[in-house]
Structure formats: structure tokens, C-alpha cells
Design a binder for these strands. Structure first.
Lengths: 353, 353
DNA sequence: GAAGATACCGTGAACGTTTACGCTAGCGAT
DNA sequence: ATCGCTAGCGTAAACGTTCACGGTATCTTC
């Protein structure tokens, strides 16, 4: 019986009649012996109320557990304290990490978040999701759009509200925040790491070109090689999955075309790739260096522990929230990109030659 | 330049004056030449409207893009169309999977979801989170509480609203839905699989006992062994992390106490464990069979591909949403637990003896 | 001691809905 | 012709706030 540590008696909820009427501003006013206007003033920290009254009202509020009704407030002010998040439905590492971070930041800033996720086909689902979000009374929307197709759908959709898109590599427009610079930088970092190790034949197991992330990471790899005066190595484009990487790597093994080093577009990609090598006696990092991207949970316990690149989701979330809330409140915020970090572990090693 | 496939011109949003006034029910009424009451009736599919009028109103609604103001509706009806989700802040596989599934189900049922995540210390954060959720006007709350401590905090918190907790192993009370049966069943399934393979010395690398999941999975392991007349093997309790599993397994290797088979409480645990073995020449599954739990993304590409147990998040979400919405609407729904599935891959193998 | 200023507080209207109720026109039955 | 009934529609009030005004006292200031 595992439940024994939990006090089952005496918990506060049961005694509460569920759904008893919520106290209103009028209840407070009556109890405090003032008018509802005064209560409203103390709620909003408005002036024109004496210290003693303010205190008295505060105490009543505390006592009866009054909480202001957001629907009523939203109705009359027509400004809201919640923001909508539109996300791709896939439970992938990047999007989910961003999502969690966004929620956290929003709450710290006093905003509630409403999340809606969409699936393909985006052209059909996005507009509806945006509308639903609008319906719920959010004051602004952040879109997490890792897929190019989804971003396009968002562009084509119409939306009254301030909207901001987190889409790596989409060029910035007035209402699109982009963190492309960082991902490309991350890819450069990864590639540069391999270059620094003395490798010259550096392949890329790219992600899906349907994803901004895939496109941008590839671009970073190309750029790093170009800047180093190296000619581009093998590049295969996949779908991020371990399966694809596995099979593609198998092919390479069969054809004996194994490069010196590989920049895998994601840790999951690296996973499949490493397995294919391991099964065929190709040692990582002795025979081939592999670097991933994401630093997913557990990547430090891959075989071998994976060298990879970590992005700062919280930094990104903080930044984009700042921008959106700024837009909602009519302010303007500057957008400094966030830098990713190289995490060196055991899957990469200096060139032997 | 990756952005070229995206039409940058002619997207619908820019032309819209951002934040132009939303049309109201009165605008519709005027355009349709009826009173707002009639419009309200067609909005709510109420009777007492002639077919022709209904049609005319519908067309106006469509034309001017009217959408009902949820704040106003919520204010007057005091019933809401959104539900709150309280989740543990950790981006772990189980909680996140459940979260995504919940959102999906809710939306299909016409409800918006507001997510709030809390961190330790729960005793302090949970009540506030519950209140915030209440503030946003949700009609009910689902708590994803994998941690015993968090569940306890929820129990001790007070909440006016229908509340339902997804907590494996917490005993069911009127407002707590539990899927413990399933997880225990999953653990039994895993252990039974090892037993069927002919193993008799079956260890358990347990998860954290702070988690319901950890407790319940351990319980399932014990039960399966007991039912098979086997005496319990080694059981070590950890924290789900690959790191802990790695170090603990290392210890086992040093002491030459490697069991025949191991039921790892999670795939991440299995990951660390397998690495420790691999580094020390202990072969999986030849020398030791390993089975995980979760079927996380990529577990089919571990070295070796991991035999594991998969839970149905969507089934769970569907079920608990059904129950909550039932509670919100005053109905009662039966609660049939969802069965987990064994996924057999390469990390387990018949006993050689 | 009157006039103006100031601090504090109450009041009414509005926000966009829903809901209960009331009204009218048309129709069938008497 | 009258009555009652019903279908279809309009109206008022209410939901819980915010906000712009107004109204009192009290306090200066001469």
C-alpha cells in the first residue's frame, strides 16, 4: 500500500461545498462597510482611499478569500491577462521544451497561458486554432512553428491579435520573432568543434527540410565548412528519426563510405547512427566522431555519451514573451538572440591521421 | 536562404488593422434586422426561430466574422468552456505525454485548456496555482501528479471546482481518478515477460519512491514474482536518471553481483544501466536481460533496441477528460482503466541455463 | 466665517452575453 | 365573432467588474 503517507482525512477540499458561490466585490464591500467602488480601488491599487479603509478592505478580502472574476474584468476592460500559445502537436523535444519555458515565464509575468496544438494539414487547422485562441480572450499569441509548412499557414491566416512566431530561420517581419541566428550558430559551433579536432571530411545527417531547424542547422554546417576553407562533405537529409539515421548509416557502412566525422542534426539522429555503426564494428569516436544537437535527457548516457549542442529554451521563452507582452502593451522591446552552448562529451575525438 | 518557399506578400494578417473592434451580437442583430435576442437564440441553437430568420442571421455571422465573447458568456452563465491542467514542471516523458494528450482531447470536446506547472516546494506552490486556475475561469481542473508529495499538496489544498487527479497508485477517492492499476499491470507484464523467458533471478532498478509511478511499478514487480513463486531479487531505488542507474550498475559489476535479468523502472534508467554493462564487457541481452518502461522516443534504437512497456497516454487522457467533464456537467462516467502493452525488442532473451 | 481646495468615497453606466418573460400575429375550434 | 393556443420575436434584468463623475466632509486661507 503506497498511499499511506498521504493524509486522507482533514484535507481542505472535502469540507468545501464544491461550487459554492464565489464571493463578489459586493460581498467584500458590504462586509467592509464601504461601497464596491472603494473595493475596486483597493483591488487596483488606485489612489483616493484612506490607509485605514484600505487595510480594512484588504483584511476582508483575505478573510473571505475573495478573488476577482477575470471574465468580468476582461469584459469591461477588454484587455486580457492571458496569452495563447499555438504549438505543433508533436511531442518533440524542442517544441515541448519551449512550451514549458513559455508557460513559466508567462506566469511569472502574471499572465495565464492557453495552449492549443495543431496537426497537419496546417492550412486547415491553424486558422481555426487561432480563432479558438481569440475566443478564449487571450491578448496575444505566440506560435511555436518548427515546421515551415506550419509557419506558412500562420502567415496566411488572419488574426486580430498581436502575434509572434518562434520559427528558426524564418526571416523576421514586424510580428515574427526569430531565433534562427542562434540555431545556425549552434550548428556552426558543432561543426567548428569537429574542425578544431582536425577533421576535414565532415558529413551532415540533416534533419527534415520541412523544419526550419533542419534548414538552419544545415546552413550552419555549410557556413562553418566554407569559412574554414573545407569543401562540403556528404549531406543526407532525413526526418530526425533514429530509424532513418540507422538505415542511412547502414547504407554508408555497406558502401564503405564512412566519413571522418558526422554532425547529426539531432540527438535522436545521432542515436540511430551510432547504433548502426556499433552493430557493424565501427567505433565511435575512434573510427568516426559524432556530434548531436539538442542535449536531450539521457544523451549523456548514450554509448558513448554524446557530444552535442544545448539551446537555452528558457532564455528564448523569456525573450519572446517579453516581446509579445511589449507588443500587447504597446511598448517596444529589443530582441537580442540567445546563444547556444557546446557540450563536449565522449563521442568526438581528434582526428588520428 | 531557406525562407523562400514562404509567401511573404499577400498574407492575410497585415491588412487587418490589428485589434479592430470585435463585432458584437448587436452588430449582427442590426445587420440581420432582428433583435439581439434572436441572434442569441440562433447562436445557442435554441428553438423559437423561423428557418428563414435563422439562415439570415447565420449568414450575417459568417459575413462579418462574428465570434461570441467568451468572457461575457462566462460572466452570465457562470459555467465555463475551459478546463485547467496543473502539471509538474519537469519535462519528463510521462507528464508531458499526458499533457499533450489531454489538450487534444479537451479541444475535441470543445474545451480550451489552461496549463500551469508547479515546482517544488509543492506545499507552497500548489494552492496558488489552483487559485490562479480558478481565476482564469476554468470549470474544472485536472492535476497530473506523478509525485507523491505533489499529490499530497493537492489533497491539502482547497478548491471549489471539480478536480481530478491523475496519480498512479493514489487510492481513488470521489474526486481522484487513478490509473494505478494500469501501471502496476504494466510492471507485472514486464516482469512476467522475464519470467516467461525462464529467468528466476530478476532484479528491479526502481524509480524514485517519491513518485507514484516508482512505487506502483515496484509493487507490480513484487507481485509478479510472488505470483510466480519466485523470491524477490535485488531491488535498488533510484531517481529515474541514467546517471544513477549507471553508477549503481557499475557497483554491481564491481561486486560481480549481476542478476540474470533486470526490470528497469524507466527507459532512461535502462539506458544508464546498459551503458555501465557495455563499458565492462557485460553483454545485453546475452549476459543479462534488460526491460524498460515507457517506450520513449528512440528506445527502439538503443544498443540494443529496448524491450519495454508502453502506456497509452491518449487513452488515459480521453478517460480522465471524460470523467472530469462528466463531473462538471453533473453526469457520472464509469472509469475503466487502460491497459499498457508489452513491446518486445532485443534487450531481453531466454535464460541460457 | 465664507470660499475654495483637497481627500475620500459613493453612484451610474457600460462591457457582451443569457435567460425569463411578455407581446403580437395567425390559426383552428367553438 | 370570440377565445385560446402557439410560433416567433423583442425586452429587461442580471452577471461582476472598471471608470468617469459627483458629492460630501474636512481643512486651508484670507
Amino acid at each position: 500500500m503506497t498511499g499511506t503517507t498521504i493524509p486522507r482525512e482533514d484535507h481542505g477540499r472535502a469540507p468545501d461545498a464544491p461550487l459554492r458561490r464565489k464571493p463578489t466585490i459586493n460581498d467584500v464591500a458590504q462586509l467592509a462597510g464601504v461601497s464596491f467602488g472603494t473595493v475596486s480601488r483597493v483591488l487596483n491599487n488606485a489612489p483616493d482611499v484612506s490607509a485605514s479603509t484600505r487595510e480594512r478592505v484588504r483584511r476582508v478580502i483575505e478573510d473571505i478569500g475573495y478573488r476577482r472574476n477575470r471574465a468580468a474584468t476582461a469584459l469591461v476592460t477588454s484587455r486580457s491577462t492571458s496569452i495563447g500559445i499555438l504549438s505543433d502537436g508533436s511531442p518533440r523535444f524542442g517544441p515541448v521544451g519551449t512550451l514549458m519555458a513559455l508557460e513559466n515565464v508567462a506566469r511569472n509575468k502574471g499572465y495565464a497561458t492557453t495552449v492549443i496544438s495543431v496537426q497537419k494539414p496546417y492550412e486547415e487547422s491553424v486558422q481555426g486554432a487561432l480563432d479558438s485562441l481569440d475566443d478564449t480572450g487571450v491578448g496575444g499569441i505566440i506560435v511555436i512553428a518548427p515546421l515551415v509548412e506550419m509557419a506558412a499557414a500562420v502567415w496566411n491566416a488572419s488574426c486580430r491579435l498581436p502575434l509572434e512566431m518562434i520559427a528558426a530561420g524564418a526571416s523576421s517581419t514586424p510580428n515574427v520573432f526569430t531565433y534562427s541566428e542562434n540555431q545556425e550558430l549552434g550548428a556552426r559551433l558543432a561543426t567548428q568543434h569537429l574542425i578544431d579536432l582536425g577533421h576535414t571530411d565532415i558529413a551532415h545527417f540533416a534533419g527534415s527540410m520541412d523544419w526550419f531547424d533542419g534548414r538552419v542547422r544545415k546552413r550552419g554546417w555549410e557556413a562553418a565548412l566554407r569559412d574554414a576553407g573545407l569543401k562540403p562533405g556528404l549531406c543526407v537529409e532525413g526526418d530526425w528519426s533514429p530509424r532513418w539515421a540507422y538505415e542511412t548509416a547502414l547504407q554508408l557502412v555497406r558502401e564503405a563510405r564512412i566519413p571522418q566525422a558526422i554532425f547529426a542534426a539531432s540527438d535522436h539522429t545521432a542515436l540511430g547512427l551510432i547504433r548502426a555503426f556499433a552493430e557493424n564494428g565501427v567505433r565511435v569516436p575512434d573510427d568516426v566522431s559524432v556530434i548531436g544537437f539538442d542535449d536531450i535527457e539521457g544523451s549523456d548516457y548514450f554509448l558513448p555519451p554524446l557530444t552535442t549542442v544545448r539551446q537555452g529554451f528558457t532564455g528564448l521563452a523569456l525573450m519572446s514573451m517579453e516581446v509579445l507582452i511589449g507588443a500587447m502593451e504597446g511598448r517596444d522591446v529589443d530582441r537580442t538572440p540567445i546563444a547556444p552552448a557546446l557540450v563536449v562529451r565522449d563521442s568526438t575525438k581528434p582526428a588520428t591521421s
